[in-house]
Write a protein that binds this DNA or RNA. Sequence first.
DNA 1: TTGTATGCGTTATCAA
DNA 2: TTGATAACGCATACAA
Lengths: 339, 339
Amino acid sequence: MTTIKEIARLSGVSRGTVDRVLNNREGVSEETAARVKAIAKQLGYKPNKAGMALAAQKKKYLIGIIVFSRKNPFFDKVIEGFTERAEELAFFGCEVTVKRVAYHPEAQLSAIEACVEEGVQGLIITPYNDSKVCKKLNSLIDNGIPVITVNSDAENVRRIAYVGSDYYNSGSAAGALMQLMTHDKVNIGIILGDRNILCHSQREAGFRERLAEDGRFNIVCCEENYDDDLKSFEIVSNMLNNHPEINGLYFTAAGVYGGCRAIQERAIGRDIRVITHDDVPTTIDMLDKGIITATICQEPEWQGARSLEIMFNYLSSQEPIDIRSYYYAQLNIKIRETK
Amino acid sequence: MTTIKEIARLSGVSRGTVDRVLNNREGVSEETAARVKAIAKQLGYKPNKAGMALAAQKKKYLIGIIVFSRKNPFFDKVIEGFTERAEELAFFGCEVTVKRVAYHPEAQLSAIEACVEEGVQGLIITPYNDSKVCKKLNSLIDNGIPVITVNSDAENVRRIAYVGSDYYNSGSAAGALMQLMTHDKVNIGIILGDRNILCHSQREAGFRERLAEDGRFNIVCCEENYDDDLKSFEIVSNMLNNHPEINGLYFTAAGVYGGCRAIQERAIGRDIRVITHDDVPTTIDMLDKGIITATICQEPEWQGARSLEIMFNYLSSQEPIDIRSYYYAQLNIKIRETK
DNA sequence: TTGTATGCGTTATCAA
DNA sequence: TTGATAACGCATACAA
């Protein structure tokens, strides 16, 4: 294994100089730098992570993450992936602070403020789509605190990257699945989360567009449940009562449990294909009970882990690294038998 | 952060002694050991990985993996996951040797022998189900070289763990998917890999059993392709010619590409549901072309990574750790829109 | 512009 | 049975 010491010996300079050259610090003559670089390259020098880690323990990078509260258990998994990766990065000097707040702009604003006061050097957030929040995020960015959006993106925020799923695609996949799992005429009800939330409407668009090409499908109604289970129960109950022809339901977002309870009670004996997203415990339960036909998952643990990884690399790399703007999660379809 | 140095200071002994106590080395008086242990526990001592890594670089653990050859690109992904994890573990002193051999007992036997000669301390293998191979593996185990089976298990081999998918379940999932994606009467053709390979026949059993409960399904034929694309082309061609009523095909194993080529050529205008396993490039291609309806994947990268991780933990842990006997991969369903 | 010295936490070796 | 010390590879403060 090639070490700095080795390179120093071969190029006839000290370890300090080699360090300066390899980490692009200043104060080295061009010729020395060139010689050292050449030798390092020739030997295929790779810095030893253990050594780096050990030396990096004095530094610390504090990274904050803000996602929505426990009322939405999807984020449990995001945080799980995040925390796991945080433990791995801990010995490179990575520290984290996790905030879970209500689905409300004010709550987010104060969480952001709290992160800043704790001194975070980078912020990962599932942003509430609100102009005050966006403005606040941009002001952080102006003050040198980079931002990564996770699971949900924000327009006009100059974040370095978005990590999450491609919502249009996932809606489209839901449509494709509905096609594969039905035959003849299908009458569909859509249960939206919130039309004002970009990702919910993107899923709806993907789903609709996919089915628009197919004459078998007729979308008979579309309602918002605002991610609330009680509201969802009510909406779906009404849908099923008012539209006895419905034999397909698509939930673009949360509130799945409430909706499924309505199906259990109001659709006895009816054969309805139900497609949802994610696999929170209540969804798994309804999959088990045969109420949900299939659910499309989006690697929540990966989203948490990957966003932290990107942020940490960004903060700890000396030279600018290239970062993509979008990191999309894989979509995994689950049915009762593969949950 | 609690360090050995800190514990040494507080318990009034040297770092060397603390190290001896915490790593269960001998040569420490009971009372000293007890005191040190108590203090370490009280402070919640966790060894620092960076420090361990740095000190562990002189040691080395050589771990071998033997899987099947490039003719089966599924194993590319297993090796990918394996290699990636190997890089992470490299700075804990983990070295690996990878062997890819033909689907043949003799080839496996000589690969095992080669590993032993290289001095591996642990072996990970996708075993060919053959008595000579099993005997050989057991003799390694008797000589203190632990074995983990990956992707495919071997009966009567005293391996410490199996990492792979639950084949009966995945066949059953394929059956469930076939149910969801069809209606009315369905006539099925099954393309097996090799009846003598346990996992292929397990998938078949899971699939059959699942559909047996459902009067809609009739399995009209079942042939072996021995994982060969040409043979597979021939079999499927004949199936489609001899059974114009077939409208569902299930591939339990490889040879998917050859079979799909036959579908392309011999089933023009017929509407056939095709369910396969894994997502090798040719399968993705056929998914794209609309020949394959859905494919059930089994986290090959995870299998490679996890098996190495278990083996490394086993080898490097001082005290015996508890290891489960079975580590099952998650099943992920993919359709064209989610590939 | 360059070199030297020191420390990060753990482990191993040698001396007591 | 214990203690002292060196070593792993890297980073950096300080000296030259």
